[in-house]
Design a protein around this nucleic acid. Structure first.
Length: 840
RNA sequence: GCGAAAGUGGCGGAAUUGGCAGACGCGCCAGACUUAGGAUCUGGUCCCGCAAGGGGUGGGGGUUCGACUCCCCCCUUUCGCACCA
């Protein structure tokens, strides 16, 4: 074989051969155990970046390992192909978004193939084709039928210059992306929502299935769902014969309530204004609060402010009348938009009351505490160790018990109830955009809102649209799209002109991979049954919340529809760290972007892969260094030359002699010292790499271990030349070496494997079993400490007993020096590890 | 402010279960081969010290025969949440 390493030549040779052999294609096979490796699908932005390389290299190592372990592996890829950037580019260049999208896909597909990732390309999916998005529409209709899709007014960003809706990404510093001087306004539009909140409890509950998800992701999701258990209590408003409903998690503190605060947007506020003696003034005051709410929300420490409306509400527990305020820190979007103020036991209320000179009344104290004369800060403890005071019939109850009993009594008397609040909001899926899945809804004057019948799907995105970035939703300006017939009454009707959020596309794409071309249903249930759940999902932490919640939500809906029979789609999740350069995220504006394709051209894909894996453990951020990759390149060259130098067609004799069936081939009594060294190092490396691939995933240490093995081979070269290492033993080590690196640098490995005289790609070769006996040391160097400090070392056989070790340690010259006649108090022996002599 | 993760040589990082701190690599130093070196190979490289020895994993305390690892307090960085009642 070629003695010099030529990665460009090797890589194109093997990529062609793999494709020809259909090496990465797999089919449902009930007789074999499956393994589903999934990486987050890329947005076709034009070129892959180092984050992609890292993501797919990790996934590829796992997929290749699982193939070699005998699993039937599915490893697919696709394109998250709808979305705003293509639409923006289209507006700018007066071209069609699909042009950008498909040319980007072509380019990036080529780059991924150049990286040599083991994808089954037959399963490739692009979300922007009707064959795919028709099923988004199908899901929409299923949601609609189940009451999970509904319309309501919702706020959007509005540019008064374009007279159009802006996506959040199009808002730059509070201004329009195209009119940097124009501040963005807000508008209310009728939009479609999906009831994710109906699944809040299941999304929380089923987290117990996600034992192999990162703690961090689960806690972010938990936080996002934000469940809190409390009570809603009605306070009659004395002056106008209505009541207002507050939400609290601390009903036990209600005897300490000194006011009620409303959000400025609360519907009751309008009524209070209209009944007020001086509506003008009150409206001005409320507008002041409202303005400060909007302004201040953006700031870190904004000032709490509010106005006393002059109205009063009656606390139903004690009949006391308390003032009603409008306050800028009360959120309309959470709970009921009204809260009771208990300054003694809530930090915000305390701060607000102190500022406005309002009373503070203690009603909770520690069980063993006194009622304080003056409170310096709010006492917010709760639970069994706090008790009620100044609370009429509830005095003496623990905070915990009081919540329970008071909630029950509020229910019995009809002025309140226990409730659960979530921070999770329903998912607003409408986008006033062109490049997305049309929402399959028809508006008929006679029949109202009518879903498009399944037989009429897909609702095709019309190709002829003038994208100006101005005016209403782009589809609204296409009469042949908008004007249609009502499926019910066949009268004239109009289509919905909004499209769906692209997160819809990515919520179920990984199901589609298992049967990418089925045209009768979104998924083939049998294929899903075989391949699911996803065994390993790999992607960036930035998707911890939105994508990874929507995906879970979708699966639950699919289960309710009867498409799947499991609650969670992904068994195990791995979030890789970012690739950074010079301590900062790579970005064009900083000019610190490293282009993978340039690196492929300079070093070859395998070197880029190797360096990516070696530079840092995959879970951590990885700081790219140009000299670091040189090291990886050097190593691959060295390893290649080493194996190539000693490659020869295999001698006849048994196949690779690793410990198949638990029996080692090499009789350790019959090998030379040098042979023993090589065999041991080989199997120690194999043990480490194997165990690591099984789940620890510190690939950097695997690469380091393999480097040590190559160093060992290099140290043993004289012995090899001198014939002290038999060819079959050398060959065994080289083969194990090549198989180990094949999951990291597959092209190089296959080339070397061929050089060793094998016809098959390494992917089809069983992963070698390591043999503990071959990996074992037979002599140990045991450190000896005196009072915990290292003072000497003794050599001993592995089988050495404690008594002997004790004797050896105390006989060591250095150790004797340090004991120096002092009294030995005790000797601690950690078998095979260490001796510590404690002296006084 | 709350929550989570992290902090180890000049740098990336290793130490899997409380047991030799700094594996492996980069960089640097010295040398070999060379017309040449940004190729390759050899040796060295935590700090102080000629050495013996001493010190050392953000800082301080503690537990232990023994702590990068466990506990308490503090500092710094990153990420997430941020008036959620």
């Amino acid at each position: 074989m070629d003695p010099t390493y030529d990665p460009q030549k090797i890589e194109s040779k093997w990529q062609a051969r793999w494709a020809e052999e259909k090496l990465f294609e797999s089919e449902v096979d009930a007789a074999r155990k499956k393994y589903y490796v999934l990486e987050m699908l890329p947005y076709p932005s034009g070129d892959i970046h180092m984050g992609h390389v890292r993501n797919y290299t990790i996934g590829d190592a796992l997929a290749r390992y699982m193939w070699m372990k005998g699993f039937n592996v599915i490893h697919p890829i696709g394109w998250d192909a709808f979305g705003l950037p293509a639409e923006n580019a289209a507006i700018k260049n007066q071209r069609h978004p699909s042009e950008f999208t498909f040319s980007h896909i072509d380019r990036m597909r080529g780059q991924l193939k150049r990286l040599g990732v083991s994808y089954d390309w037959r399963r490739e999916v692009a979300t922007c084709v009707p064959e795919y998005y028709r099923w988004n529409q199908w899901f929409f209709i299923r949601m609609f039928e189940r009451g999970l899709a509904y319309r309501k007014k919702s706020r959007v960003n509005w540019c008064p210059s374009c007279e159009t809706v802006l996506a959040n990404e199009q808002v730059v510093n509070g201004c329009c992306w195209r009119h940097e001087e124009t501040p963005v306004m807000e508008r209310d539009l009728e939009q479609w929502f999906w009831k994710t909140t109906a699944y809040a409890e299941r999304l929380l509950d089923d987290m117990k299935e996600l034992v192999r998800w990162p703690e961090r992701v689960l806690s972010m999701q938990q936080n996002w769902i934000g469940k809190s258990v409390g009570a809603e209590i009605d306070f009659p408003v004395n002056e106008i014969g209505e009541h207002l409903r507050i939400f609290t998690t601390r009903v036990d503190t209600i005897f300490g309530c000194t006011a009620v605060y409303l959000a400025a947007e609360h519907p009751l506020v309008e009524k209070l204004i209209s009944f007020s003696e001086d509506p003008e003034k009150m409206r001005r005051d409320v507008e002041g609060v409202k303005a400060s709410t909007a302004r201040a929300r953006a700031e870190v420490n904004f000032e709490k402010m509010g106005v006393d409306t002059g109205y009063t509400a009656r606390n139903p527990f004690n009949g006391e009348n308390v003032p009603i305020w409008v306050a800028n820190f009360v959120l309309m979007g959470y709970g009921t938009g009204a809260v009771m103020a208990v300054p003694a036991h809530d930090e915000r209320d305390f701060e607000f009351s102190v500022r406005h000179g309002l009373p503070v009344r203690t009603v909770i104290v520690p069980c063993d505490g006194e009622i304080p004369q003056v409170l310096k800060s709010a006492y917010t403890e709760t639970g069994p160790n706090s008790k009620l005071v100044n609370s009429g019939p509830y005095d003496g109850l623990s905070s915990e018990k009081a919540i329970e009993r008071m909630t029950r009594e509020a229910e019995a008397k009809g002025f309140g109830k226990g409730t659960v609040q979530y921070r999770l909001k329903d998912w607003g899926i409408s986008r006033q955009r062109y490049w997305g899945s049309p929402i399959p809804i028809i508006y008929c004057d006679a029949c109202g809102i009518v879903p498009v019948p399944d037989k009429d799907l897909p609702v095709i995105l019309p190709p002829e649209v003038k994208l100006t970035g101005q005016g209403q939703s782009p589809l609204a300006s296409v009469p042949e799209f908008v004007n249609t017939r009502c499926p019910n009454c066949h009268g004239r009707a109009r289509r919905e002109t909004d499209t769906m959020d692209t997160f819809v596309d990515s919520s179920w794409y990984f199901y589609r991979y298992t049967s990418p071309h089925i045209s009768t249903a979104p998924i083939d249930k049998d294929a899903v049954k075989y391949w699911f759940p996803v065994d390993q999902y790999i992607g960036g932490i930035e998707h911890a919340i939105l994508h990874l919640i929507y995906m879970r939500f979708f699966t639950k809906v699919m289960r309710d529809i009867g498409l799947v029979d499991f609650p969670e789609p992904v068994a195990r999740l791995f979030t890789q760290g970012m690739v950074i350069k010079d301590g900062a995220k790579m970005s064009k504006s900083k000019g610190n972007v490293v282009d993978p394709t340039a690196m492929f051209a300079k070093y070859g894909a395998d070197t880029v892969r190797l360096y990516t894996l070696f530079a840092a453990p995959p879970s951590r951020d990885f700081d790219w260094s140009d000299s670091g990759i040189e090291g990886a390149s050097r190593f691959l060259n060295r390893a290649y030359r080493m194996v190539a130098k000693y490659s020869s067609p295999p001698a006849s004799g048994p196949a690779r002699p690793t410990a198949q069936n638990g029996k080692s081939r090499w009789d350790l009594h019959q090998v030379s010292a040098e042979e023993r060294r090589l065999i041991r190092k080989t199997h120690q490396t194999l043990r480490h790499v194997t165990e690591d691939l099984e789940g620890r995933w510190h690939f950097n240490t695997d690469v380091a271990m393999v480097m040590e093995l190559v160093n060992e081979l290099s140290d043993l070269e004289d012995a090899i030349e001198a014939g002290k290492i038999r060819p079959e033993i050398l060959r065994d080590s080289l083969e194990i070496l090549v198989l180990m690196i094949s999951v990291f640098v597959p092209h190089t490995a296959d080339e070397l494997w061929e050089g060793l005289g094998h016809a098959q790609a390494t992917l089809r070769v069983p992963w070698p079993d390591f043999d503990p006996e071959l990996a074992a040391e037979d002599e140990l160097e045991i450190p000896v400490q005196v009072n915990g400090k290292l003072r000497g070392r003794v050599r001993a056989a592995v089988s050495v007993d404690e008594a002997e070790l004790r004797r050896l340690a105390q006989a060591d010259e250095k150790v004797i020096q340090f004991i120096n006649g002092r009294q030995v108090v005790k000797i601690i022996i950690v078998p095979q590890k260490l001796v510590n002599i404690v002296v006084k």
